[in-house]
């Protein structure tokens, strides 16, 4: 329950416009989409759809202080939907004996080849983690957020975050080793 003072201060603050939201958060949304989406999902498409949804729902936002968490949730949901579509497409193409490859058909510059191979390996390892593990790794390890922040973004208790993080690190190391063994 908000106190009278808090209510006044909240109402006095200007509700953010879509332009403000876009300017402040577009880079984060694109980065989240790239990190959570995997190689078959275009982060720009995801960001576009996130801001279209944000434009529709911005008036119902509880408070500007929740903006980042809210946008993260929209991004995660959009990525989840697209992952589902990709799985369906893979399944349907599989029925036709075709493969939905993530490979970029463009040839690479020679010096970029090794880098590309390692980047692909890391992405593949990240893909093999569970959604929750991937989220926690991205927010904690790549974005450098605190445990409390990660808990707010993911929507679980902070104590659980440390457990998930511990397992996610172990799983990532295991998958990287396994993929490196396979590629030898």
């Amino acid at each position: 329950m908000l106190t009278a003072e808090a209510t006044i201060s909240f109402e006095a603050r200007a509700r953010p416009t879509l332009a403000d939201v876009y300017a402040q958060h577009v880079t984060s949304v694109i980065a989240w989409a790239a990190r959570l989406g995997g190689p078959l999902i275009d982060p720009e498409d995801v960001a576009h759809d996130v801001f279209v949804t944000a434009a529709r729902k911005l008036s119902g936002l509880a408070g500007p202080e929740h903006l980042a968490v809210w946008l993260y949730t929209l991004t995660r949901n959009e990525v989840r939907n697209r992952r589902r579509q990709v799985r369906l497409r893979k399944f349907l193409l599989g029925l036709w004996g075709r493969d939905l490859s993530a490979e970029d058909p463009r040839p690479l510059a020679p010096d970029a080849l090794e880098q590309a191979a390692t980047a692909a390996l890391v992405r593949a390892a990240l893909e093999r983690l569970s959604e929750r593990q991937r989220e926690v790794l991205v927010l904690f390890e790549l974005e450098g957020r605190s445990g409390a922040e990660v808990a707010a973004f993911v929507g679980v208790k902070e104590a659980n975050i440390w457990v998930v993080l511990h397992r996610a690190r172990a799983a990532l190391a295991r998958e990287v080793e396994r993929l490196e063994e396979d590629s030898k």
Binding site: V26, A34, E44, F51, A170, L172, A173, V176
Partner: peptide, 30 residues
Amino acid sequence: AERRALELLRQHDPALSVRPGAAARVEARL
């Protein structure tokens, strides 16, 4: 092994593969 995997993850952060100008392109689409 975990430290090495995390180092690789940081070096090859998928967000680094986003093409320059992505924000402007998304804005133009909007």
